[in-house]
């Protein structure tokens, strides 16, 4: 059953008022000639990318194509070896980490939950960039946490320990932590990994709702092509450290693209539910199924 993430629709306006940034100011995130390297090994070779503000961008590609690496650079976690990531035209690396964190939220692949932490406490840690050594917990913090819990339907679990929760609930807790951070752009690295199909759809529905109601820009890396095509406004296909194609899923995702990006023969047909492109792998053994 997939009704666990019913999102109260009351909150959208509040979401932007608290941070003091009007919803009408889109924050632009872009990569300009970005090269990324781990040690000596270059993984991303000169990527130019404009993230459409207020929309859902999904980055896909084969394992090792550099998509997660690119996302980490967009989040300021990784410093480009060449080129730069810009936030509203300014070099991300030159901005103060705290100022970046007030605008950009990141949910990495494997976040760590401290042992024994409660849901409310973990969500509260999303307020880190809004606090300082001398500025402690405030009414605005309490309100942001409460709103994040409501948006993710976690209010009833607020006092529970995170380690007691199921995988789907836990992922919603991390999402709530990022919502409490109150960012204008949310970056998520494979948020649906380890979730079953129902919870994957749940989580993506929730993200789509948040994007629609509060205008928060969403950028995520996904493995599942069909879910990517269904939820993306803007699809970015990467291959060997470069952007292979980008645009609306219907324009980008065809058999040729899948072949080039993944080396996989496939038919692309319209998704019977949404009409988005749907990838049906040919595989080597289809004769047996037919």
């Amino acid at each position: 059953m997939t009704t666990t993430t019913a999102v109260p629709v009351a909150a959208p306006q509040q979401a932007t008022e608290v941070s003091g940034i009007a919803a009408s100011d889109p924050v632009r995130l872009s990569a300009r000639g970005v090269h990324l390297a781990y040690d000596q090994r270059t993984v991303v070779h000169g990527v130019d990318l404009e993230i459409p503000p207020g929309r859902v961008t999904v980055i896909v590609g084969a394992n090792g194509c550099g998509k997660s690496t690119l996302l980490r650079a967009l989040a300021r976690v990784l410093r480009p070896s060449r080129g730069r990531v810009e936030l509203d035209g300014e070099d991300l690396q030159r901005l103060r980490p705290k100022d970046v964190a007030a605008v950009l939220g990141l949910l990495p692949q494997q976040p760590l939950a401290p042992e024994g932490i409660t849901v409310a406490d973990l969500v509260g840690r999303g307020r880190h960039p809004h606090q300082g050594a001398f500025r402690r917990w405030s009414a605005a913090d309490t309100e942001a946490v409460s709103r994040a819990l409501a948006l993710t339907d976690l209010h009833d679990l607020a006092a529970r320990r995170v380690e007691e929760l199921s995988g789907g609930q836990r992922q919603r807790v991390w999402l709530a932590m990022m919502l409490a951070q109150d960012p204008r752009i949310m970056l998520l690295d494979e948020p649906t990994t380890y979730l079953d199909i129902a919870h994957q759809v749940d989580l993506l529905d929730l993200l789509a709702d948040l994007n629609e109601t509060s205008g928060t820009t969403v950028v995520m890396v996904l493995h599942e092509l069909n879910l990517a095509a269904r939820y993306a406004d803007h699809l970015v296909v990467m291959h060997e450290g470069r952007v292979l194609r980008e645009g609306a899923p219907a324009d980008v995702l065809d058999a040729e693209c899948v072949q080039a990006a993944f080396g996989l023969r496939a038919s692309v047909v319209p998704d019977p539910v949404t009409g988005a492109p749907m990838v049906v792998p040919a595989g080597r053994r289809r004769g047996r199924v037919a």
């Binding site: 989040a75 976690v77 964190a101 990495p108 840690r125 880190h128 951070q181 970056l187």
Partner: peptide, 8 residues
């Protein structure tokens, strides 16, 4: 990574 995302 989460810490960096939180501006630390």
């Amino acid at each position: 990574d989460v810490a960096r995302g939180l501006g630390q």
